[in-house]
Every structure is written in C-alpha cells, then in structure tokens.
Write a protein that binds this DNA or RNA. Structure first.
Lengths: 192, 192, 192, 192
DNA sequence: CATGAATGAGAATTCATTCAT
DNA sequence: TATGAATGAATTCTCATTCAT
C-alpha cells in the first residue's frame, strides 16, 4: 500500500532532518533510512523541499491545533498558560526530533516556504497574545506589550527541551514547573 | 595589504553566512562579496570551516569578555543583569548578523568545532550562574536552579533581537526594559 | 544495463590511466572517453582511487593467477620459466596498456593502496622464487640468491614490452626467445 | 649569492620530486623544503617543468658522461661492463633519489621534454651497444641483438637499487657481483 | 634578489532530480 | 508503485603562475 511507504518516508525524513539540518541531510540518507530507493522518494514527493515542508508544516499545525483547543477552553488564562507549557514541554520531550527541526532548520529554505512557516508562527503568537490579553482583562497578568510577551512565551517553550536546559534525563514535571514559574514570576525575589 | 583583505573577507563572510546558513553559503559567494578570487580565500583561511570558525568564535569571545567584565564589577547582581541585557540587546541590534549566525548555524559543522562552541556557551552560562548565585546570596533573586535560570537568561537575551520580537525599527531602550522586566518579574500581576 | 556501463568505464579508465598517469588523468577525461557523465563514474566507483585500484589489482591478480597455474604444473623449472616468459611477453604485447600502468603509476597513490600492490608483487616474487628453488634442486639453475633472482626475472619480464626494447612492430616469438636466453644464459660467450 | 639559492632549490626539488612524483610534488613543497618563497622559485626557474628538466637532464648527463669515460678506456668489454655496473650500483645506492626520479617520473611531463629524455636514454643505450659490439668482436660476448642487450643491461642497472632487490641495508659490493653475474652468465647452471 | 599576496583554471566529489524498465 | 542507473550543475579545494613592493 502506498500510504504505508509514504508514512515510512516521512518518519525517516523526520529523523534525518532532525539529526542533520536541511542542507546536510540528503535524499540518499532519507531513502536509506526508509529502506527505499531515491526514485521512490520522488514518486511520493515532488522535491526535497516538499518533503521537508510536509514535516514542518504538519508539525506546526499539530502544535497550533492544541494551542487553539486549550485557548478555547473556559478556564482562566493562568490555567491556559500552565496547560500550554505542560503540553509543549511534554510533547517536545517525547518528540524531541520535531523540536530539533524547528530550532535549527527554519531559515534554510526558499523564501516562499519561509513565509508559510512565518504565518504558522504568527498564528501561535496570536493565540498566545489572546490568552495574555485575557489575563490582563482578568487582572492576573501585567500590562506588558501582549505580542512581545507572547513571543517570549513561545521562545521559552521551545527552549525548554534544548540540550542546554536539561541536566540529565528530562523530568517533564519539574521542567514544566520551572518554565511556568520563570514565565509567571520571573527570577527576582519580592519580599513583603 | 594582507590584513585589509583578510578583514574584508571576514566582513563579507559575516554577511554571507548570516544571510545564507553554513551549507547554503558558498565560498564563491563570499569571494564575490569580498571582491577577491576564490584562491585568495584559501590564502587567508585553510578551509570554509576555518573561516566560519574564526567568525563564530571571535563573536562568542567578544560576548564572553564583556560578560566577564560586567560580572567582575563591584555592583549588585540586579545591576549586572541589567547591564548585561543592555549590552546584549544593543550589540545584537547594531550587529544583527552575528545574532543570525549564532541562532541558525550552530550545529551545522564538524563535531570538533561544535564542542568548541559548546565550551564558549558553557562559559557564558557559568558567568550568568555566578551572577544568579550572587543574587540569591544578596536575597534579591529567588532560589531557582541557578544553571537553568542562567540558560533561560541567555536564551531571552539572544532571542531579544529575533525578527519575532521586533515590531519595526528596533528601539533598544524599550527592548532592554522589556527583557529586564520580563526576566526579573515575569508576567503575572501580583497585587496585595 | 549497469554492468555494460561499468565495464565500459573500466576500459576507458584503463586507456586514460595508461596514457596519462594517475595524477594527470582526470575523472573528466575518463568520463568523456566512456561517453558518460562524471556523476556516473561516481555511481559505479566511490572515488578515483577506487577506480584505479580495481584496474591495477585485477590486472595483478590476472598475472598472479597465471603464474600460479604455471608454477603448479608438473614440469621442469626451465619449462616453467619459459612458459611464464611466453605468457608475460604475449600478454603485455596484446595488452600494452596494463604494462604502462604498472610501470608508471605504482607509487602515486595512498599508502594503504601501495601496500596492497606490494603484497601482490611479493606474491609474484614468491612464486618465481619457488620456481628458482625448484631449479636449484633440479641442478638446472645456479645457486644465486633466489629472491633477488626472482626480482630480476620479474623486472626483465615487465621491461620486455617497454618502448625501449621494441624495435618496431613487436614480434612476440622473437621477444620471448630473447628474454629467455638473456635470463638463462646471460650475455657472455663461454667457449670450451 | 644567487647561485647558492639556486643550488639549494635544486637539492630541495630533487628530494621532493623523488619522494612525490612530478604531479604530486608541488612548488609550495619545494619552496618550503628550500626555505624560500614560491616567488623565489620563479625567479630562478621559469616553470615547474624547467626545474624538473634541470634535475633530470643533469642527472642523465652525469650518468652518460661516466658511461662515455668508461667506454673510452682501453680495456676489455667485460671490464667496461663491470666498471659500469660498479659505478651505476654505487651511485644509485649513494644517490637513491635520482634513481627514484628516473624510475617513476619519466613519462609524466610534456612530450617535448619526453623527447629530450628519450634522446639521453638513446645515448646511454648507444654507448652500451658499442661495448656489447666490442665484446662480440672480442668473442667474449654472444651474438645477441646488441641494442636489445644494451637495453636489458640498462634496465638491470636501474633496477639494481629498487626496493624489491634490496634485502636490508644495501651492500654495494654484493649487489655489483650479483648484477654482473646475472648479466653475464644468466641463471642456468651449465655443467661440463 | 626575494617575498607575500593574489589569481583563476581545473580537479575531485556531491547531490537533487529524472527516467526507462 | 518502485527501482537502479544516469545526469549535470554546483561545491570545496589545489596549485602553477604572476606581480607590486
């Protein structure tokens, strides 16, 4: 069945792209990893860029969909932020390859494609912004520039699984608490 | 004169690498940008990687040296953090190419080189960690894991000039205030 | 069909290497001679050196195998020597390119490869040495150092088709007689 | 003084060419070995080929001159042959670099140059041929084709110092005896 | 005389892509 | 659908040669 092969190629490409970056990864590597010939890659995907596109955009869509779901729940903005961090950290730990790809490959492709990625990013930022604005309205969040705040939040999230932040084995609960606390309260000690 | 040419090549390479990423940038592009022949590149640098190395390591050294200078001043940890953010934001705005290179090219080269970059990174983190620990002793900073906190601080700094965070023309003062406030106090509004 | 192409490349490489020496011969020349693209060369062979290796080692193997066959026949050492010279001279005349390659290219490649060639050479020398020793036992050959004698024999053989030794059109029978006589009896006239 | 530099370059080139073959040897290597700049090489020699030419032709001239001197002595052909072998073996052992160059580099250069080398070779062969003819007249040498015999003699001589023929430390006296005996009497045992 | 710097043609090799089977 | 073979443009790097100082 064609679809099995296609999925197998996508999985292999995910692995190869996460380990090698867009230009260093070759179609030959992906074909070998998938156990198919290079010709087969081109039967399923028009080009290397299209294959990469499929992976990145579907990954970003996956995140955005979850962000939207959480944003639409009838809960406080603080709860939403906690849930988003929890989802983000857990997903990136389980699925570290996607994080690697998003962190390292984004501006390595055609401008056309970059624009589509940027749009997805803006969608994420927009969702976060709305949550921030909800928090400001609820008086649980400070009146900082909501867009900038949203960007910092997104950055903190995607940094959460970088090798720099992890001591040894990633403990997702601890990680979530750390990011949430860092994001909400900052690092200064306010005594009263 | 040799040194002028070398510096000209470094500048051109800085530009080309920042716009194109390590693999997409070619020696031909750098040569053309510098107005010299490809052979001249190889007279001054042994290889493409060495040219890249020179740029990245000297950039990281520049940052680290400033971080050390600030860390050694006889001032409170809060002042140090403010100064570091101020320096970082200003430098990255003035010199946005370096930020692009550091953000996008780091894991594209030989393992040997990656290790040297990692060492420089660890040096930065170590400096920040000591400032955090000073703050904890001075009771102006919360008892969070100092290393993780240092990593988040470094990340916030290097994100500060990403295209996502900037509206239009970058206003460094505003940017510094935002990052400092975000880092110190987080986003939640604590009223009492 | 793949195998035809591969053989065609080998033939073309044989020609180009024999006319040009390892460093002067370029992959572009071989590709042009074979009527394929440079990329095709690399589909069939990993590198220039591997292509050269294939030619040289298979050539040496061909000689060694024949030498072994002759050495194992149940005939006198003198007959063996005659047969070897006959085979060598004939083959080198028919296949003069191989002789050119073996004479001129041997020490132009990686040390690793040189060692493999040396081993083949030693095999030839060893076979000849045993024939010499057989002749000494049979009292038809003088008690000279058998290894040195074997080397001289090999040299005489491979020189046999050098341009220096041939007047015009090579007449193999005459050539064989000359080499055999030279080898067995030397040049001095012993009258008694 | 210019001449010292020129001689120093020639010595360095001799070394580099003997270790590396014409195409693998680079002007940079020769310059480094001589401790001068590449520019200096081009002040003293017009091109790489001219530098090589100087070495090879002067080497061949040196041999030819000695061969002529020996040929002109008023001694028997057998004595001449012994003296030539003695001179050749000794010189090649003492000066193994020249042998390496002559053995390995000859057909790697321009046709024009090859012709000049060929002429020198023919001169050697001619000298040897005359000695052989003298021997035939003196009835001490068999009536073999004198030219071919001369070529084999030359070959035996230049093979004498190849790594294949030498056990460990070259012992010139033994070597001379072996070559002379091989050349004069061949390997077969003639009992009478 | 000597040099360091610069040049550019050409080398080996890689790789996305195509296509007959 | 799938493959192996073929392509050719692009890439890094080398090296003989030139030349102002």
């Amino acid at each position: 069945m064609s679809n099995e092969t296609k999925q197998c190629i996508l999985n292999s490409a995910l692995k190869v792209f996460s380990e090698n970056n867009y230009h260093a990864a070759s179609m030959a590597m992906i074909a070998k990893e998938a156990g198919v010939s290079k010709g087969t890659l081109y039967w399923h995907f028009d080009s290397k860029e299209e294959l990469f596109r499929e992976i990145v955009l579907s990954g970003l869509d996956y995140f955005n969909q979850k962000f939207i779901n959480i944003a639409e729940e009838e809960i406080s903005s603080e709860e939403k932020i906690y849930k988003i961090i929890n989802f983000g950290v857990t997903t990136l730990i389980e699925n570290s390859q996607m994080g690697d790809i998003l962190r390292n490959n984004v501006q390595l492709v055609s401008e056309d494609f970059q624009k589509r990625i940027e749009i997805k990013h803006r969608e994420s930022v927009e969702i976060f912004k709305q949550i921030i604005e909800q928090g400001i309205k609820e008086k649980s969040i400070k009146k900082l520039n909501p867009r900038k705040t949203a960007v910092m939040m997104l950055t903190a999230l995607f940094t959460s699984n970088s090798e720099w932040l992890i001591d040894q084995t990633p403990d997702s609960k601890q990680q979530v608490e750390f990011i949430y606390s860092f994001l909400m309260d900052g690092i200064s000690r306010k005594e009263n």
